[in-house]
Design a protein around this nucleic acid. Structure first.
Lengths: 110, 110
DNA sequence: TCAACCTGCAACTCAATGGTTGCATACAAC
DNA sequence: GTTGTATGCAACCATTGAGTTGCAGGTTGA
């Protein structure tokens, strides 16, 4: 298995989405239960529009899903999205360590 | 266990570091074996200085380690770093899904 | 009808960052 | 000693992106 094959653009985008504190705050807030953008804006120190942009990013990578509830749009965390990227990262990490161990053994046999 | 306790600044920084294509290219190149910044610059389409900055970021979050080899500084991937963040992400994802299932069950019991 | 919401879109500011060039330094080899 | 190569630091540019304000369109309910 090649390392390059393990590098997935989807994983990069997912990590990019997760590399922001505000986005984690939104995810944490949604962890208390589904909420609309306006509801989140009342609890978080940023505006509704900023939250909307963040949620768009999170939705794009599949970390949140939308639930239409009357006139408002509620958002929900998709926990399995995190688990998916976690498995990918772990696989890559294991592969790297395996390769490193192989190189080490070759060096010792010299 | 609270979601907020699961949100770790170290994880955010790690994800931020992994949210860049060039950084993944560097990691992939290092997966072929340890290399110096100059050596990487010959293989990648960006300058040595750009690579040095990226490696500084990767080193800061513990994804690469430095190996002094004479006058040159070689870099090595730390695969366990990926595995660590993977476990954290998976734990958070599982917790979110568990909570979501609990909410669902409460709703069904109404 | 009108007021109070929620939503969406567009334009703007401002800081962070990916990338560059340039220069100075240090070490290795011929 | 000189040449070639490796590193480090600083300044600079261009782009991205987080966040804001402002405005317009829909719903709900009094």
């Amino acid at each position: 298995m090649s390392i390059d094959n393990l590098v997935d653009p989807a994983v990069v985008h997912m990590c990019s989405a997760l590399g922001d504190e505000s986005r984690w705050s939104i995810l944490a807030a949604l962890g208390e239960g589904d909420a609309s953008a306006s509801a989140l804006a009342r609890r978080l120190p940023i505006t509704r529009q900023a939250i909307a942009k963040h949620i768009a990013v999170l939705h794009e990578v599949g970390l949140v899903e939308t639930v239409q509830a009357g006139r408002e749009v509620r958002y929900r965390v998709v926990g399995s999205g995190l688990s998916t990227v976690a498995r990918r990262l772990d696989a890559i990490g294991v592969e790297w360590d395996r390769r490193l161990a192989a190189i080490k053994q070759i060096a010792e046999n010299l």
